[in-house]
Write a protein that binds this DNA or RNA. Structure first.
Length: 413
RNA sequence: CGGGGUGUCGUAUACCGGUAGUACGCGUGCUUUGGGAGCACGUAGACUGGGUUCAACUCCCAGCACCCCGACCA
């Protein structure tokens, strides 16, 4: 991608209306634009990162055999009335059409996925099953805040599983869902702490995945012995750890990046989602639900990976593999060398952002640090004279000189 | 949803009951080009509605927007 033609402009000034690090850097770096409180446009750079995050999630969901679906954001009131949540759920956006019909904007999709399973599930032989989607959700949060961490419109992956009984649900929960979640976070450079939480309205327990960051909006209490945590809601001084019995905890600020719930039969009952067991008897389907806020992860990643100059993306989610800066572009030999390197890397399937703008070197360096592409290449009069280009990792001081003709060395770095 | 705060060019601000100035940014041109270059010219603003007043950006009221703290967070 050529930066001179890309829908991207960084800013010298930071947004004045949000002090959070993720909002400041993502807006200043041209990743997102704020449209109103809690609502953002994802610009090309930001969307690339979001897509990488979602691809990591998607790959793990596919690995555990869940089918991807896409359910509507616009939903009929009837489904919500059926579960009682039309009246009960305070964050539900309710809207009326000009013909007087009521609709909900989906904050979560139990009301759609459960009836969707009716024609699919009829026998114990159809179970277990799982589907997921990655989709835009709407929640009328009383207070949007902290950039992408708490918004009213956001991207989320939601997985739903269907089982014959609670034992099967619990096994899936522990042996499939939790390990898949941990692989997802690890793949994007995050260490997520499994955290016990209350079950909300329909279950005794649930789990959150929390990433420890100083700016985290939650406090968790991590067992010193086994690492399992409890969230603020359920933590009490002196309580024994559920897993190892330990009683020593450390308090840590953290940000929630996932939340999983055993739904049991709450929604299957509402929609009469049943199956016939081995004895020919009808039983309620047992369900579980597993969420990951993918746009929120974008914010959490910035909160975790930045320095005073800007963002430092982990490679797996970086918008590009390399940021190629062309300096001294007025020298035809230099410009040609940069073009050749750019073309050669692209031919190898490497994602490169070429800064071919007519700007001073200083501006390019500063922008490159702000945007945070993990590896920076520089082609300049100075480097071309030596038949080389420079390689520097974002966040590190060392610069390495590589010969232009041996550019393929980059592919293994 | 309770409490608090703020609304003047994109940003940061100044002044003022007599109709708005500066800096940065942004744009164009020329000169520049290894860590946010220089010069020139340009661009753009009083949240909205009502009230008081001869006169309101300024005072009063209402609304709206945004931010912060808390509550909430299937």
């Amino acid at each position: 991608m050529r930066q001179s033609q890309y829908f991207l402009k960084t800013s010298k000034t930071q947004p004045s209306d949000d002090p959070s690090v993720n909002a400041r850097l993502l807006e200043q770096g041209g990743f997102v634009q704020k449209v109103m409180a809690g609502v953002y446009t994802f610009l090309p750079l930001g969307l690339r990162v979001l897509a990488k995050i979602e691809d990591i999630v998607r790959a793990e969901m596919d690995k555990i055999g869940a089918g991807e679906v896409l359910m509507p954001a616009l939903q009929p009131k009837e489904n919500w009335a059926k579960t009682g949540r039309w009246d009960e759920l305070d964050v539900l956006f309710r809207l009326k059409s000009r013909h007087g019909y009521d609709y909900a904007l989906g904050p979560t999709h139990e009301e759609i996925v459960t009836p969707a399973a009716l024609p699919v599930i009829s026998s114990y032989r159809d179970l277990p099953l799982a589907v997921y989607q990655i989709q835009t959700k709407f929640r009328d949060e009383p207070r949007a805040k902290s950039g992408l961490l708490r918004t009213r419109e956001f991207r989320m992956k939601d997985l739903y599983s269907f089982h014959t009984d609670e034992k099967d649900l619990n096994e899936y929960y522990e042996k499939v869902a939790i390990p898949a979640y941990q692989r997802i976070y690890r793949a994007m450079g995050l260490d997520a702490v499994l955290t016990e939480a209350s079950g909300g309205t329909f279950s005794k327990f649930s789990h959150e995945f929390q990433v420890e960051i100083p700016s985290g909006e939650d406090y968790i209490y991590v067992c010193e012995k086994c690492g399992l945590a409890k969230n603020k809601e359920i933590f009490e001084e002196g309580v024994a750890c559920t897993v190892c019995g330990g009683k020593k905890y450390r308090e840590a600020a953290a940000s929630e990046v996932g939340n999983i719930f055993p739904l049991k039969t709450k929604y299957s009952k509402s929609f009469e989602l049943t199956y016939t067991d081995e004895k020919g008897k009808k039983q309620d389907v047992v369900m579980g639900c597993y969420g990951i806020g993918t746009s929120r992860l974008l914010g959490v990643l910035v909160e975790k990976y930045h320095d005073s100059r800007g963002i430092i993306w982990p490679r797996s989610v970086a918008p590009f593999d390399f940021h190629l800066l062309l300096l001294d572009a007025s020298d035809p030999k230099v410009a040609e060398a940069a073009e050749q390197l750019y073309g050669a890397l692209q031919a190898k399937g490497v994602e490169v952002l070429l800064d071919d703008r007519d700007m001073s070197a200083g501006v390019k360096f500063v922008d490159s640090d702000l945007i945070g592409i993990p590896r920076r290449l520089v082609v300049s009069a100075r480097s071309v004279e030596k038949g080389s280009f420079e390689l520097k990792a974002r966040g590190e001081g060392k610069t390495e000189l590589i010969e232009l003709r041996s550019f393929e060395k980059l592919l293994s770095k």
